[in-house]
Design a protein around this nucleic acid. Structure first.
Lengths: 357, 357
DNA sequence: CATCGTTGGTGAATCGATTCATTACTGATT
DNA sequence: AATCAGTAATGAATCGATTCACCAACGATG
């Protein structure tokens, strides 16, 4: 086994008989002395083949190191056994959890998952969607990067099912799984108001994202309930949603006059960045400024000051989205009903927003 | 455009003429009044077609919404235009960075990347490798989950190139990109010894991973240089390498007598978990126990006590690995020389290991 | 005018697995 | 003995893009 001349096998057709590139189903059939149809049956419907024949075929498969070609299956089937997941940013542990949930559900169904980052760029998103169409993926889970929905509208002509993740359905042509972001924003800001704050900064994204807008709306509604007008929400926009952007936002927050006594961040990465900035400037959290984040990623609890955050059921969301997609993809007779599932967020209070004693 | 009866097109063959499932190259050829070969040329060698013909074909493509099928291309080409990346844990930001680097390099070459988690399980790893073989991916970047190398040995019979990531080459049959973990461990523990510690705990993984063993070896060599024996390193093994495992390890650390005054963690996730445990138990860091982590993930700096850590050039590693793989995959004439690249880590000192004043 | 080269285009063969109508055979039933 | 049912296996057609040997048309050249 270890002594065979591997090098010669690895090179091109320089040797005796063709070097048998990669064994195909025909090679197996020849080796086992059966037809290709039988080999296919052994692989896909073993019970339809006599045990004796079956084992002969399996032996041939083993001997030749045969691995069936997915491309050929796909070509015949018209679509691949891969599900695509397009998220905004894999650097955000929230999306890693979504991916985990989706992957688990997909694996149970025998599918692979191709995870991609749009990086919040509609152009990147469009490019990836094009790639998915070429790949004839069996479906796409997507957290849309552009609010216009133009990319997805264009994509829908390919008749590949897709499910929106972390976003409510914008049209009746697909399923969606989301978390009630309005409620999440309301929980976060309501909590701050209860703690006595009367002016809250909102560190947000560009506003292209529904999540961001909804959280803002929830924040405003909480203010409204407390008898405060929208001017009590001081917006600090930020083009990206990562820790570095949070640091920038923190610096800008420090420059505001009057300085808000509380800040609500559109996600935990921003919150961690803001926290770093405040910390570096000697501003105490929560005494001087209280912080509430969003997503409750694992690192929120480990922060310099453990972060109060709005927890989202990320893994569940990924799993549900994948399951909805599978339902739709398996639907032969057009009985599939598009569904829009909305999950509920939960406030997790930690030190960053609770005045000590 | 918005008025066409989309529903009828979406359903099965209930209407007039076959519903034209998905337009193929033949449909385009017919529509444009040319042969399939010409359509193929328009797509792949546009300069070889008269501008007039070309635009007619492009118009047909546009009109039919034609998207070429990757499966068919792959079948013909023998391999896909997708590179696989199999990491230990996408929940670890370190691997997210590796993925980022790899993805960037792959995209530049027009390839897609399929990112998968082995979760440190050799069985999962084997399953994924099997999937990759079926997919006929053009290559695999892998951080091996089993130290025996059995999975990869089995995989090598498929003649699909692979590059080891974060691991030195174990055999001459492939490229590898790694970081000098011995040196990293040595830097970390050397730093602790310089700060006056004489007994260091090492929170490690199961020992199946080379990274873990090498970091340990580096730690021992640092002890040796300081005239201390291996008994000065108190090992706290842990089956996984995430924050939860770190919390467990922290609890065990607290139970040790005599209690080490410093702890070196095999990665930052463990370190963050340990930190949480110590913090919860009222043990001060670094006054009572100093902590050094590994990887210098973004969240290390944001921790309750900012973590001293050993930084690895993760993005660079991912990119280099992908580039090596592409070189090997594009290599027709067997001139490819397998290379093993070793990158250098760097110690980043923060509050978790420096005695105040 | 015949020959050659070039350019633009053709269409059949190919990749490998699946599917399905067909055949070969074995027992059982009438 | 003839018919039928059922099982096991066959092999040709199919999916869609690529490739390549070949062809037609045209201008240039001897």
């Amino acid at each position: 086994m270890g002594q065979q001349p591997r090098t010669s096998a690895a090179k091109g057709a320089s040797g005796a008989d063709q070097v048998a590139r990669v064994a195909g189903i025909k090679d197996v059939a020849r080796q086992a002395g059966v037809s290709v149809g039988t080999v296919s049956n052994v692989i896909n419907r073993p019970e339809a083949v006599l045990p004796e024949t079956r084992s002969r075929v399996l032996a041939a498969i083993e001997e030749l190191g045969y691995v069936r070609s997915e491309s050929a299956r796909q070509l015949r089937a018209g679509r691949s056994r891969i599900m695509a997941l397009l998220v905004l940013d894999m650097g955000n542990p929230f999306f890693v959890d979504v991916a985990r949930g989706a992957e688990r559900a997909a694996r149970e169904a025998g599918l692979g998952v191709m995870v991609c980052n749009s990086g919040q760029s509609p152009a990147e998103e469009a490019e990836y969607l094009g790639l998915f169409a070429e790949q004839r993926v069996c479906g796409v889970l997507v957290t849309p990067a552009d609010a216009t929905g133009r990319n997805l509208e264009a994509f829908s002509r390919h008749h590949i099912p897709f499910v929106l993740v972390d976003r409510v359905a914008s049209s009746p042509g697909h399923c969606a799984v989301s978390v009630d972001d309005v409620r999440g924003g309301s929980l976060a800001v309501g909590h701050l108001l209860t703690a006595g704050h009367r002016s809250v900064a909102y560190v947000s994204g560009t506003g292209d994202l529904h999540q961001i807008r909804d959280r803002r709306e929830g924040a405003l509604s909480a203010l409204d309930r407390a008898g405060l007008g929208p001017e009590a929400l001081v917006e600090i926009p930020s083009d990206r949603l990562d820790v570095a952007a949070g640091r920038d936002a923190g610096a800008r927050l420090l420059g505001l006059v009057p300085r808000p006594t509380a800040v609500f961040c559109a996600n935990d990465l921003l919150a961690l960045g803001v926290l770093q900035s405040l910390y570096a400037a000697g501003v105490r959290v929560p005494q001087d400024i209280a912080i509430v984040g969003y997503d409750d990623i694992e690192f929120a609890a480990a922060a310099a000051v453990p972060l109060t955050s709005v927890r989202q059921p990320a893994v569940v969301m990924g799993r549900m989205a994948a399951e909805l997609l599978l339902q739709e993809a398996d639907d032969e007779d057009g009985t599939h009903e598009h569904r829009s599932v909305v999950l509920q967020p939960e406030l997790v209070v930690r030190a960053s927003s609770t005045t000590p004693h």
